[in-house]
């Protein structure tokens, strides 16, 4: 493992004022409409932590993930990974940096080339990064497959010959081939069956300890995010609306949206009824975003101020950030 020098507060990644805008063609007079997928978003991820990111579909979680990976360039803002700004690196520098930042996606079926053998899948990143010779690559591959519990005689098999859980473990092993320090797990366990999901979650937690990794764990499933993460950010409409330590977040929810997400999670217990949710379902139109606080059309507590003025994300207690005008008192 590469051990970097100690920097202030062990910050691994710092993103500031990220904006990402997408355009869609309406077909009417070739007019283009645009909307922000991520807007003025800032976050810091510390070394060795699991940073959880939750939100409904379309809130910009995956766009944020792909910007942090360097797959998409933000329209404005900066992403500092250990002091280097990802947004204005040349492609060769970015390739160098990809060794450090890797990803695992939701669907192992879609993210493995069906015509590659397991060896080819595992070897490709090593070849691209010029790591060799072949014997060394084989050694790396075998040790990683062993870590994720895939038998070494699977090397000449194809992805379709693996089960869903094995495929996702293979994706994790592939992400680890270049000894990254930061993994972005974008819904990495969402497509798995519960019994397999538990195995993969435990594997991820073990690997994090053994290899001193840092995770960004993106999911729509609050109970898994809460189980996995140290700190949790709740995203709504391209912005972070609440960010706190997971213990703080379970004791002291301040944003009505976070509250609603918690209430909507069905508990696996017949004696806990599904709570009557006090917010409207569905994210409002991204193209005509509501003015003021983006959450106000769904918020039961919205005031005139919420309709006019967008709240800033501010710290209400140590490490607990909320973007809500009414965040001063806890939600009843």
């Amino acid at each position: 493992m590469t051990q970097s020098t100690n920097t202030a507060d062990q910050l691994l990644l710092k993103a500031e004022y990220l904006n990402k805008k997408f355009s869609i063609s309406t077909g009417r007079g070739f007019k283009k409409l645009s909307y922000y997928a991520v807007r003025d978003l800032s976050l810091e991820i510390k070394k060795g932590e699991i940073f959880g990111l939750v939100g409904e579909s379309g809130c910009g979680k995956s766009t944020l993930g792909s910007m942090l990976l360097g797959l998409q360039k933000p329209d404005s803002g900066s992403i500092l990974f250990e002091g280097k700004d990802l947004t204005n690196l040349s492609s060769s520098k970015l390739k160098e940096l990809r060794k450090d930042i890797q990803t695992v996606f939701q669907d192992p079926y879609d993210s493995l080339d069906p015509r590659f053998t397991i060896r080819q899948i595992m070897e490709e990143p090593l070849i691209i990064q010029g790591i060799g010779p072949a014997e060394k690559r084989t050694e790396i591959i075998l040790s990683l497959l062993d870590r994720v519990d895939i038998p070494s005689d699977f090397l000449s098999r194809y992805p379709h010959q693996l089960s869903g859980g094995q495929r996702q473990r293979l994706c994790i092993a592939r992400a680890l081939t270049l000894s990254p320090r930061f993994l972005i797990l974008d819904e990495a366990v969402s497509a798995l069956d519960v019994s397999v999901q538990a195995q993969v979650i435990n594997l991820l937690l073990d690997l994090k300890e053994q290899l001193e990794l840092t995770y960004l764990f993106i999911s729509h499933d609050l109970s898994i995010v809460k189980f996995m993460s140290d700190r949790i950010a709740v995203m709504y409409f391209g912005r972070i609306v609440e960010l706190a330590d997971k213990h703080e977040l379970s004791r002291n929810i301040r944003h009505p949206y976070t509250k609603a997400l918690f209430l909507a999670m069905p508990e696996p217990d017949p004696d806990i009824p599904v709570e009557v949710n006090h917010i409207e379902a569905g994210v409002p139109s991204l193209i005509n975003p509501p003015g003021g606080c983006a959450f106000h059309p769904r918020c039961p507590y919205a005031t005139d101020r919420c309709r006019k003025e967008a709240p800033e994300l501010r710290e209400i207690s140590e490490g607990h950030l909320v973007a809500c005008h009414l965040a001063c008192e806890p939600i009843s």
Partner: peptide, 24 residues
């Protein structure tokens, strides 16, 4: 029993989940 035990609940505090070994 295994299915019920291996779901993370909102109040799960431990750092490991119960697993059913093997696969379907």
């Amino acid at each position: 029993a295994g299915l019920i035990k291996c779901i993370p609940r909102l109040d799960t505090e431990s750092r490991r989940l119960y697993t059913i070994r093997g696969s379907t």
